[in-house]
């Protein structure tokens, strides 16, 4: 057969983008994410009011044209605070997942490639980390390092490292058995080269999916930590913290809790939708449809 549907990296990128465009749910998810990034980057300038502009004349006002999300107990504009808090959420999410991705992938790659005692030691450590309830582990880390943005980021990063280590290791174990890896060994390629050039590119798909899903959970974890007062410290706005602060006013000022909560909900949902769509597009079983068809005729 002279040519078949794309499996090359460019073909795959194009197919991924086209799938995200054509699947309505994935499209919505991506749109929300784009909006979130714009707000996160430019929130300070886009926000109608300053983040800590206190106005005691306008405490606890219900949503109105002037303040679409209402105001809080100090008269601060909730819309502005939600917008500016997006930056914190995104930052914690991206940095912590970045940490988890880097550390987890490296450990998983070493464990899966070398097997043996290294695999045992590394993966048992990951099992221990994994066995802790996510929040408990994060609380423990924060307790040791003290609360704050940086600590929250590190804590969330540590919590998600085992997932990446496991996903990577599983991928490495199957790719390692492929003939093309044996072919690379047979021409004398070094282990580092084989891991970088042959193994890693072939497990990129599950890692991308995992990254997208983990971002959702990382943002949720950060919100939970902030809610517990262990994350971002006031007066810096964070969705979780705002939720916590609004807790005392549920009956008289519902908007204090609802809007930060909705922001968390939408962000997590958007990452999940995109992650699911990516999973469908990048699923290796989907990639081999053309080969399967060829061998069936």
């Amino acid at each position: 057969m002279s040519e078949t549907t794309g499996r090359s990296s460019e073909g795959q990128l194009r197919r991924t983008l086209s799938a995200l465009r054509h699947d309505p749910l994935a499209f919505t998810g991506s749109a929300v994410l784009v909006l979130l990034v714009v707000v996160g980057v430019a929130g300070t300038w886009l926000a109608p009011a300053g983040v800590n502009e206190v106005d005691v004349d306008r405490m606890l006002q219900a949503p109105s044209w002037a303040h679409p999300f209402g105001t809080d107990e100090l008269g601060r504009d909730v819309l502005s605070r939600v917008m500016i808090a997006a930056r914190v959420s995104l930052q914690v999410g991206l940095v912590s997942v970045g940490i988890a991705l880097t550390v987890g992938t490296t450990l998983g790659l070493l464990a899966g490639y070398y097997r043996g005692w290294l695999d045992n030691v590394l993966m048992r450590c990951m099992d221990v980390l994994f066995a802790f309830p996510v929040l408990l582990l994060a609380v423990a880390i924060v307790a040791v390092l003290g609360p704050g943005l940086l600590t929250a980021t590190i804590a969330v990063g540590v919590v998600y490292t085992p997932i990446f280590a496991r996903v990577t290791r599983a991928g490495v174990l199957s790719v390692r058995e492929q003939v093309f890896v044996r072919a690379a060994i047979s021409i004398g390629a070094s282990d580092l080269r084989i891991m970088r050039r042959h193994v890693l590119p072939n497990i990129a798909a599950p890692l991308i999916v995992q990254t997208s899903l983990s971002l959702a959970f990382a943002i949720l974890s950060e919100a939970a930590l902030s809610f517990l007062g262990l994350g971002v410290q006031p007066p810096e706005p964070a969705w979780g913290r705002m939720l916590y602060d609004g807790r005392g006013f549920v009956t008289e000022a519902w908007w204090l809790g609802v809007f930060p909560g909705a922001a968390i909900f939408l962000t997590v949902l958007a990452f999940n939708l995109v992650g699911d769509a990516l999973r469908d597009v990048l699923d290796p079983r989907q990639l081999t449809v053309s080969e399967a068809r060829r061998s069936s005729t």
Binding site: R7, S8, S9, Q178, V179, F180, R182, A183, A184, I185, S186, I187, G188, A189, S190, R197, H198, P201, N202, E291
Partner: peptide, 24 residues
């Protein structure tokens, strides 16, 4: 040292599809 040996002796595999990295 074996890496140098594997220049002296090369190998061709049974399944040409599987022996080539699909992404390269």
């Amino acid at each position: 040292r074996l890496r140098a040996l594997r220049r002296r002796v090369a190998m061709v595999f049974q399944d040409p599809q599987a022996s080539l990295d699909p992404r390269r």
